[in-house]
Design a protein around this nucleic acid. Structure first.
Length: 275
DNA sequence: CGGATTTGACCGCC
DNA sequence: GGCGGTCAAATCCG
């Protein structure tokens, strides 16, 4: 089995990616075989089946894109070859489904990171280091990594809580020019496993079944608390306009006032799996 | 009773 | 000074 474009991934990730990719390819072929396009009527069972196919395929794409992210997230830049892999997988899927589904993944910088990173020479040195502020009340948590060194990525989903991890809410804030408050969550295993994963959830404007949430994750989980039902949950959560963007320190800074100005960079899933 | 959530206060950055 | 992010006491809940 040959897996290109995953040089920095652990061996088990390569295997998982390979298996998921193979399943995705088989499912794509199966869909085109079973469901000649276009489907007949709006509520017909062929369309229902088509939607189910799309959800499964979307789930595969999201899973693969997550697995393709480098594990050493504190010192590695995004794997360029991985981005090529994602795009190819997307094109393969789009060749079957019209209009094309879109999964956009980009790395963008924290606006504060750019200015501060110039004075920061190392990244891993800050792991599990206490940082105390002037005041006694405000200090960073144990093991917290400075904000300028945190990676973040954003996903838009209808089910922001179904990501397979356990979260504890620690704050809620009304954001200017935003209709809905932003909720702040950290991993439930922050204390016992020093897992620094965080996420913010903010509802987008919309109603009914079109309600979507912008979920911004910061730091990767180190607690290995993935829910075994995660794949099933993700596929329903990421249906339709799943957009994932990753923040890193390479891109130019964005002003905070710019409303979601992240320009998605399409990432390929063009790795080949051969026996 | 212990863990999770709420919520006002506080802090750093711009 | 405004804003976003975090803290921690109060409160809720199983």
């Amino acid at each position: 089995m040959v897996l290109s474009g995953s040089g920095q991934l652990p061996c088990h990730h390569k295997m998982v990616i390979g298996e998921i990719t193979r399943s995705h390819q088989l499912l794509t072929r199966l869909k085109s075989l079973v469901l000649p396009s276009p489907p007949a009527s709006a509520q017909s069972s062929p369309e229902l089946a088509s939607n189910l196919f799309d959800e499964v395929l979307q789930s595969y794409k999201v899973s693969i894109s997550m697995l393709l992210r480098p594990c050493n997230c504190y010192s590695e830049s995004p794997d360029v070859k991985s981005s090529e892999n994602i795009r190819a997988l997307e094109e393969e899927t789009n060749s079957v489904k019209e209009p094309p589904e879109r999964i956009a993944i980009s790395y963008a910088s924290d606006s504060r990171k750019e200015s501060q990173s110039k004075t920061s020479t190392t990244s891993n040195l800050h792991l599990y280091r206490h940082q105390w502020r002037k005041s006694g009340k405000k200090k960073t948590s144990i093991g917290e990594i400075p904000r300028e060194e945190q990676q973040s990525w954003t996903t838009i989903t209808a089910a922001p809580h179904l990501d397979g991890h356990q979260w504890r809410k620690y704050g809620e804030k009304h954001i200017s020019n935003s209709e809905f408050p932003r909720n702040y969550y950290r991993c439930s295993h922050l204390k016992e496993k020093k897992c620094q994963a965080k996420k913010t959830v903010q509802q987008k404007a919309g109603s009914g079944e079109r309600i979507r949430f912008v979920v911004t994750y910061k730091m990767h989980h180190t607690c290995k608390s993935m829910d075994p039902t995660y794949p099933l949950l993700v596929e329903s959560a990421t249906r339709e306009d799943s957009v994932i963007s990753f923040a890193a320190e390479d891109n130019p800074p964005r002003k905070k006032t710019e409303a979601s100005s992240t320009v998605p960079m399409l990432i390929d899933l063009n790795f080949t799996v051969q026996s």
